[in-house]
Write a protein that binds this DNA or RNA. Structure first.
Length: 427
RNA sequence: GGAGGGAUGGCCGAGCGGACGAAGGCGACGGUCUUGAAAACCGUUGUGGCCGAAAGGUCACCGAGGGUUCGAAUCCCUCUCCCUCCGCCA
């Protein structure tokens, strides 16, 4: 959510932000019009309430019966007016808040300007892509390797839950578990994160707080009976950990990491990436999350990118870091880096991590503030989120990059302690 | 799922229709005193909105949402959460 004062003060800046995102800037003017109506009504209601409060206090002290009745009758009228205005105000306020929730974040000045993903900028790359031609064989895609090795079963996944569901089996399931354990260990022991195990379902308000609702309702699963919503990412739970709290500045920065499954309906991606495990309705992810002071959030973003990179370097997987341009930027984000891995089998770059500084966008929605050490008014924190890392795509990259000519897959060295002695996955 | 009890400021806790944004205590902060500290004493100590250049004014918030009333922390209704007992269950 954006600061309404900023929108009032610099509407053109907000309109420009929407244009940069390829969104319609008219939303800004709708918000401003509602804000104006809201304040007009507020002033009128409050003036009447002030009068009622004043006269009611008088009535309490009055002895003269007739004069008293007269005042009560007058206030009864005022009460009716107040009730009418309050109803109008409630409606305008609801509309105002709703509109405000549809406004995306303002891109940071360092976010590259561009229309769509073609304008994203590769900021650096690490590692050498393996030369399969020199080794004399064609790398196979994971959707062939997995079933061949009996570690991946698409048919039975579909049988249980429909398309876009799959089963990991044997060494495949174990490899994913090894990755989760190993990543959590690195983040908690070396990168200073506190591990969190959250509920996998949350109240609707948590999704509003994190920015998924109202705009992305299509992509979420929810339980109608209890109105509980399945996490599309652990970010939703982590954002709301400190909802409605005023933190001490000395507590900041707070760094959390959580492993959770993530659930997405993928309605909007129907027909895209249907092969393999790249885009499922359910996937696992280890998520990093930080609450920082505003002054240090951009530094924290770079640090967090480093934490994700450290994992890929340890896994010896070649990757590149991409700065997402304004036209491709996520709704809540001011600045985002994606980390992409090369998948030689299916021949494409895979996004295994998306790391964003959303500044105070989520903090405003979820009301997360901190008290400056020197005293003074509470201020909104900045929050950052980043995958560290997403499992299916990491699995794809490992399977396809570590495959051998005979169809077996080597287990990356750092994972071997977690694999119970398995060094090579073979039939 | 059934029966009963509860939810008040950073914490504890009073208030149960009229000057209550809320007694009292604790904690925290500032001051007096002291070589320093403690004790004692004095003072300060919530959040948000609206109007205003500011000073200040005003509104709202006593779990949440409705309602009754001239007036609600206090009365009524609905919901949520917590506690105790019973039932059921990984």
């Amino acid at each position: 959510m954006l600061d309404i004062e900023l929108i009032r003060r610099e509407p053109e800046r907000v309109r420009e932000a929407l244009r940069l995102r390829q969104d319609d800037p008219a939303l800004v003017d709708e918000v401003l019009a509602l804000d104006e109506r809201r304040r007009t009504l507020l002033r009128r209601v409050e003036a009447l309430r002030a009068e009622r409060n004043r006269v009611s206090r008088e009535i309490g002290r009055m002895k003269d019966k007739a004069a008293r009745e007269e005042k009560i009758a007058a206030m009864r009228e005022v009460g009716k007016q107040i009730a009418d205005l309050e109803k109008a105000l409630r409606e305008v306020e609801a509309a105002f808040r709703d509109k405000l929730l549809w406004l995306p974040n303002i891109p940071h000045e360092s976010t590259p300007v561009g229309a769509d993903e073609r304008d994203n900028v590769v900021v650096r790359a690490w590692g050498e892509r393996r030369d399969f031609a020199a080794e004399g064989f064609e790398p196979a895609p994971h959707w062939d390797l997995g079933p061949e090795l009996d570690i991946l079963d698409f048919e039975r996944g579909v049988k249980l839950a429909g398309s876009r569901f799959y089963i990991l089996k044997g060494a495949g399931a174990r490899l994913q578990r090894a990755l989760i354990f190993w990543m959590l260990d690195r983040h908690t022991r070396e990168h200073g994160y506190t591990e969190i195990y959250p509920p996998f379902v949350v109240h609707k308000e948590m999704l509003v707080g994190a920015g998924q609702l109202p705009k992305f309702a299509d992509n979420l699963y929810h339980d109608v009976e209890e109105d509980l919503w399945l996490l599309p990412t652990a970010e939703v739970a982590l954002t709301n950990l400190h909802r409605d709290e005023i933190l001490d500045e000395s507590m900041l920065p707070l760094s959390y990491v959580a492993y959770t499954p993530c659930f997405r309906r993928e309605k909007m991606s129907a027909g895209r990436d249907v092969r393999g495990i790249k885009r499922g309705h359910q996937f696992d992810k280890v998520e990093m999350y930080k609450f920082t002071r505003p002054e240090e959030s951009y530094e924290a973003l770079e640090t967090m990118v480093g934490h994700a990179e450290a994992l890929l370097q340890a896994l010896k997987l070649p990757y590149r870091i991409v700065a997402i341009c304004t036209g491709d930027l996520g709704f809540a984000s001011a600045k985002t880096y994606d980390i992409e891995l090369w998948a030689p089998g299916q021949g494409e770059w895979l996004e295994v991590s998306s790391l964003s500084n959303v500044e105070s966008f989520q903090a405003r929605r979820a009301n997360i503030r901190y008290r400056p050490s020197g005293g003074g008014k509470p201020r909104y924190v900045h929050t950052l989120n980043g995958s560290g890392l997403a499992l299916p795509r990491l699995m794809i990259a490992i399977m396809e990059n570590y495959q051998q000519a005979d169809g077996s897959i080597l287990v990356p060295e750092v994972l071997q302690p977690w694999m119970g002695g398995i060094e090579v996955i073979r039939r």
